[in-house]
């Protein structure tokens, strides 16, 4: 039964991940004044890439990168409960808590660094370095906000954190913590102005430069699922989770649209600037938020 539940969670994450990716392409196209591709496009891209052959090879270490990333994303999805009540769609959340999830969020980028490093492509390595540098700055405000939430709920367990918000969600109870987490969340989502990792005008596609075929598909799928996991995490921590699937979709969608829109109207910071910005503003917000608890 648990296995079926986990499978369902992965399917939902995969489906909604790509659906949101398609919506992202559509919504940003609307901001551009274009129509944008159909929603099926991102699914068919993924499936097409899965049946294609790779055009480059750099040994098994290179292929391990996307695999580790994908396992990080899968575990993330499984450890975050989709709903705040009931038996279904809870995944492994009873076996782990917020701290495990925060730990798993770093697993992917680290694994990727191993793989990309063996390709020897300078742009890939630069992208990874940028990603890791930015990650350090992203984690700081996000951890501050997470710590605040944990202190407030008195537990690191998702169920208890969500239950604590049954009267008032953390977003309104602790707006500063939410702001800190949200800015950092934009960075985690790879949205402007923090999209330094795969900046095409600077480092081609960054870590993804040398990947092709199935492994590119794996990278795309894991990034779609990981995005959904991050949306879930934000909804659970600050918006009190969701009672049923409909509410979950509504809440994640609102959050996702906000991130998309913000990403499409700001210019990209350079790596140093984004680190500086993240360390200054959201971290400061987080610290003040913690002090106000």
């Amino acid at each position: 039964m648990l296995l079926l539940d986990l499978l369902l969670m992965l399917l939902i994450a995969y489906g909604f991940g790509f659906l949101y990716y398609g919506l992202y392409r559509n919504l940003s196209a609307r901001v551009h004044g274009r129509f944008g591709p159909s929603l099926a496009q991102s699914f068919s891209d993924s499936i097409k890439l899965f049946v294609k052959e790779e055009s480059t090879t750099f040994g098994w270490m290179f292929y391990l990168g996307p695999v580790i990333m994908a396992s990080g994303a899968v575990l993330n999805v499984l450890f975050i409960p989709f709903l705040n009540q009931g038996e279904s769609l809870q995944g492994l959340s009873s076996y782990g808590n917020l701290i495990v999830v925060l730990y798993l969020m770093v697993l992917g980028p680290l694994g990727n660094a191993l793989g990309v490093g063996s390709s020897g492509n300078p742009f890939g390595v630069m992208g990874v370095t940028r990603g890791l540098t930015r990650l350090l700055a992203l984690e700081l405000p996000f951890y501050l906000a997470a710590i605040g939430v944990m202190i407030d709920a008195g537990s690191a367990d998702f169920g208890i954190i969500m239950q604590a918000q049954s009267t008032q969600s953390n977003m309104f109870a602790h707006p500063l913590l939410f702001a800190a987490a949200f800015i950092s969340f934009l960075g985690f989502m790879g949205k402007s102005p923090f999209d330094v990792v795969g900046a095409p005008q600077e480092v081609y596609s960054g870590p993804a430069t040398e990947f092709s075929g199935k492994f590119l598909a794996l990278l795309m799928s894991q990034s779609a699922m990981f995005s959904f996991a991050k949306l879930l995490l934000m909804v659970n921590l600050f918006w009190g989770g969701a009672d049923h699937l409909g509410e979950l979709v509504a809440k994640t969608f609102v959050l996702f649209v906000a991130a998309t829109f913000i990403g499409s109207v700001y210019a990209r910071f350079s790596t140093v600037q984004s680190v500086e910005f993240l360390i200054r503003i959201p971290t400061l917000l987080g610290i003040v938020g913690l002090a106000l608890l």
């Binding site: 940003s28 402007s192 900046a199 499409s264 210019a267 990209r268």
Partner: peptide, 8 residues
């Protein structure tokens, strides 16, 4: 604008 990732 493209060079700073502001595609819009």
């Amino acid at each position: 604008s493209g060079s700073v990732g502001l595609g819009t």
